[in-house]
Design a protein around this nucleic acid. Sequence first.
DNA 1: TGGTATT
Length: 391
Amino acid sequence: MKEADAIKLFIGQIPRNLEEKDLKPIFEQFGKIYELTVIKDKYTGMHKGCAFLTYCERESALKAQNALHEQKTLPGMNRPIQVKPADSEGRGEDRKLFVGMLGKQQSDADVRKMFEEFGSIEECTVLRGPDGTSKGCAFVKYQNNPEAAAAINTLHGSRTLPGASSSLVVKFADSEKERGIRRMQQVASQLGVISPMTLHLGAYNAYTQVLVQQQALVAQSAYLSPVSTITMQQLAALNPSSLIATPIASLTTSGTSTPPNMAATPVPALPPPLNYPPVPAPPNGQPASETLYTNGVHSYQGPEGCNIFIYHLPQEFTDSEMLQMFIPFGNVISAKVFVDRATNQSKCFGFVSFDNPSSAQTAIQAMNGFQIGMKRLKVQLKRPKDANRPY
DNA sequence: TGGTATT
């Protein structure tokens, strides 16, 4: 029914209102489809905006990827469709090596010379800092996996280069997923997760024991697939703000009218702040979780005039903290802090969408200029997509 | 001045 070397493709950037039957016509022009599955949330059944696709023939997958990947944007999407081998297909990181413990003075050419006897090198790059100095490591990509494996076998630990503190390291480069785990671990250590001592708890009592057990569970799930089960929210949830060692309290500015409790941040479960700035009651008593539908397409954005832009957010504000902050002004359709994809760090701005312009105006009136720590929030209507950029 | 998701 399908070839042994068929490739399972990951399809991304598909509108959430398209099901298998809608997608089929787009893809079957490249060959007979063996399996096409929209990815849905295991528990809620929610369409995740992506799918898996396997053609009967390997060649069809390659054709579809060539013709469609990043080539076309489906209606309602902001970015072009993604058509590429699924993560489960091993994606060719099996021929890319990480090389560590190089000397600082070794160039791309030096490294290439050392590795070229094992196969055809497609890419060879010494990693360098902003000032151009070598970080003492490199990536080397061969044309195939056996070449890479041969280089590991012969070179790993084989010698200590001048200027290096230890013997040469040659191993397969981390996959995207492994890099994700590494980032999470860095964040975790920054937050002081894991060690009760860094939480300034003093004694290792029954409470901290439970806390650390919970952390171990989350950490475990980070090593098993799917890696995405660990999130910043989960990390934050494990850190009651009163226990966090980082000096968040320093955000509070004394001598202003700012409610001090606005500065104690990353606790999703935090009840809405008590000392809010003057706030009229929300226009109605509806819960803020109502979802807006436009033409049957799930939309995260309210109508024109309902979406606000918030700048100068505290670095540690997440979606849920921002949601908490704006719930008093009306029905919040979505609250999104802009996060840098590479670092997972907040860029200190975000968007909140209401279901009506009046709530948005109320929120702007009440919150623009609102002081948090040393900064004042800038709260305005979101610039429409097609707006002319003044500069 | 957004929305990238991997059974």
